[in-house]
Nucleic acid binder design. Structure first.
Lengths: 209, 209
DNA sequence: TGTACATCAGTGAACGCGCGTTCACTGATGTAC
DNA sequence: TGTACATCAGTGAACGCGCGTTCACTGATGTAC
């Protein structure tokens, strides 16, 4: 290292190395099967050094979950500004697909640990998704065509949309597009799927009750 | 034991005890964090006895996945007979909710291991879900209002529906209804959600493309 | 700028533990006559 | 039905291994004067 770094800066680098090592290892396995020694080894540090940065593996896991949702929130915020539901949906679908493909490891962490045996991570992830859905319900209420809907129906619609976005994301992690063409196709399919929901929502009162 | 059993029958009982022990342990943790010794202990048998029934834990896991999908298929078959999409959807939603609540442990296994680090289970589960979606697409094509749809659009619709059913099931595992009233509410919400999709599908050609 | 001391990120040895798998075994059940 | 032998589900001791955590340590960085 030619550039001089303070002790604090070096410490941050090691901390980051541990987080990245964990993310790398989480490509192959779930959090529950991760070991502190593996993470330390992958980060190029002794197991003991780990304790200078985190109390235990769970604490490191919570930091990763926090980072994952940070990226998800950025993504959503970008699409919020639009006015017509269709535009919001089209832009959201595209951003969703792009974000998942760019941040594979983070999104896989969320998908996997949502039902994991590691209670702390599971609860953190579920709380974030619930927040996401309730924010979406609030947003939806602002659209003129939806403003007479009951809170309950808005909730069902928001859950349906969040559920669909999750399953789109999961589908992308499962079989990622192999090139720009397939990526465009994935975006188009995601848009179609979410638009079908919006079309359904629009016709809902007349035929659904 | 007062009733006489053959050696073969006793062996089957032990095998079942091992499977049930694993299911019980899977309430608390994911498959990756399960150990052969834990399962044997829970089944009241020495670790060595395990090998008389399965080569390793993964093989036992595959048997459980098979059982889970068996129950899922039974459930679907029951709703297939209906003619109008709305009836199919209403009955499917109700059966889905009931089945998940009755077979919590099996459905949780599917939800959890769909993204687990245990490759063998993950692949088995994904193959079954793909099969499920493609069968649904075939079924959907039989409805008069959908018979002019393109294969691609039918695929999108089938994925949307399967995705929604999965996320409904996952929601039930997450926060199960605490009584008959809440159960009815859960069924109603599931029906609403799937009906919204059907309404959307019906309006799709006119406004979607 | 130079010195003397304090801090603290990372080390390496050691511990007890549960793991998967092997092996030779036991003794009840099943079979051949 | 009775006997002699074969089968085989389940046992229990033993193995080597990676694990999380503890501890006293080292030596470079930071601070006070």
């Amino acid at each position: 290292v030619t550039i001089e770094l303070t002790r604090t800066e070096r410490k941050q680098l090691t901390r980051r190395a541990l987080l990245d090592a964990a993310l790398r290892l989480l490509e192959d396995g779930s959090f529950a099967s991760l070991s502190l020694r593996q993470v330390a080894r992958e980060a190029g540090v002794t197991p003991t050094a780990f304790y200078r940065h985190f109390d235990d593996l769970e604490q490191l896991g919570l930091v990763l979950v926090g980072e994952s949702f940070g990226r998800l929130r950025e993504m959503i915020r970008a699409a919020r500004a639009e006015l017509a539901p269709e535009h919001v949906v089209r832009r959201s679908a595209e951003t969703l697909v792009r974000s998942v493909l760019e941040q594979r490891v983070h999104f896989r962490l969320l998908a996997r640990e949502r039902f994991s045996g590691v209670a702390v991570l599971r609860h953190a992830i579920r709380a974030e998704f619930r927040l996401f859905a309730s924010e979406l319900a609030t947003d939806l209420a602002r659209f003129p065509e939806l403003d007479h809907w009951s809170t309950e129906d808005l909730g069902v619609l928001a859950n349906l949309m969040v559920g669909s976005m999750i399953s789109i994301a999961e589908g992308l992690l499962e079989t990622p597009p192999s090139g720009p063409e397939e990526e465009r196709a994935a975006i188009a399919a995601a848009q179609k799927q979410l638009l079908m929901i919006i079309v359904g929502a629009r016709g809902w009162r007349s035929s659904g009750g």
